[in-house]
Simulated scan of single mutants.
Amino acid sequence: MKDATAKITRTTTVYGRTYKISAAATGSEDVDLEVLMLNGSDEEIGRLMGRIPRPSLHSVGQALSALAGITSGARAPGSGNKRIDQLRKTYPNAYQPWTDGDDQQLAKLYGDGASIKDLSTAFGRQTGAIIARLTVLGQIEAAVPPRKPPSQPSPTAAVPDRPAPASDGIDPPF
């Protein structure tokens, strides 16, 4: 990351591994990116470096976020629910809470024309979760109107103790 005019570094620790992420603006329209992976003893166990055109930075960030979701989902302790654990093999963020950052990114990408399927892949969530969240965010209208509260049954409504006869006049055999 030589000749950088501005540099930002962030550090985060996930499941005992520390990630130091640095981005440096160069004199050109490129950004130098470096991701350093450290184990619990602060020994370097991996490094990713490259120069990215500034317009591509958002897409690269999404790809890294999706990859982080896939790998952390594989290492994360189980949810305690077999169905959710099985879903998370395909959708690493299934039933995880949405963050404000997720909401902003989802609304932006949808507004930019991303498909529901692409958003599902990028966010590691089922298509139904994407549609539901876009509805909550006011980006799309609900496909089904909200249910009305059930009305109280009238006290005079009779509850049959056996099914009504079939329209052909033949009663069921029970």
Rank of each mutant, 00 (worst) to 15 (best):
A4R: 09
T9N: 08
R10H: 08
R10Q: 13
R10P: 03
T11V: 13
T12P: 08
T13A: 10
Y15D: 14
Y19F: 14
A23H: 06
A24I: 01
A24K: 04
A24F: 01
A25L: 06
A25F: 05
G27H: 10
G27N: 13
S28D: 14
D30C: 10
V31H: 03
V31R: 02
V31E: 09
L36K: 05
L36Y: 02
M37S: 15
L38D: 07
L38E: 03
N39F: 13
N39W: 11
G40L: 10
G40Q: 15
G40F: 03
G40M: 10
E43V: 15
I45K: 07
G46V: 10
G46E: 09
R47I: 04
R47H: 05
R47F: 00
M49D: 15
M49F: 15
R54N: 12
L57S: 02
V60D: 00
A63N: 08
S65N: 08
A66D: 06
I70C: 09
S72Y: 07
A74E: 13
A74N: 06
A76P: 03
P77D: 08
P77Q: 08
G78N: 03
G80C: 01
G80D: 07
N81D: 07
R83F: 01
I84S: 03
R88K: 05
T90E: 11
T90Q: 08
T90L: 09
P92S: 02
A94K: 00
Y95C: 11
P97T: 07
W98S: 00
W98L: 02
T99L: 06
D100L: 14
D103Y: 00
Q104C: 08
A107E: 01
A107Q: 06
K108L: 15
L109N: 12
Y110H: 15
Y110E: 12
Y110C: 13
A114F: 14
K117E: 13
L119E: 00
T121S: 15
F123S: 06
G124Q: 08
R125K: 11
Q126D: 09
Q126M: 07
G128Y: 01
G128M: 04
A129G: 11
A129M: 04
I130Y: 06
I130R: 00
A132C: 02
A132T: 07
R133T: 03
R133M: 03
L134R: 02
L134Y: 01
T135Y: 04
V136R: 10
V136K: 12
L137I: 04
G138E: 00
Q139P: 04
A142H: 05
A142N: 07
A143M: 09
P145C: 05
P145N: 02
P146A: 15
R147I: 14
R147N: 15
P149W: 05
S151H: 00
Q152R: 15
P153G: 08
P155M: 07
A157L: 11
A157G: 09
D161H: 11
R162H: 11
P163F: 00
P163Y: 01
A164V: 06
A164S: 12
A164I: 02
A166N: 13
D168I: 02
D168F: 03
D171W: 12
P173N: 03
P173L: 01
P173Y: 03
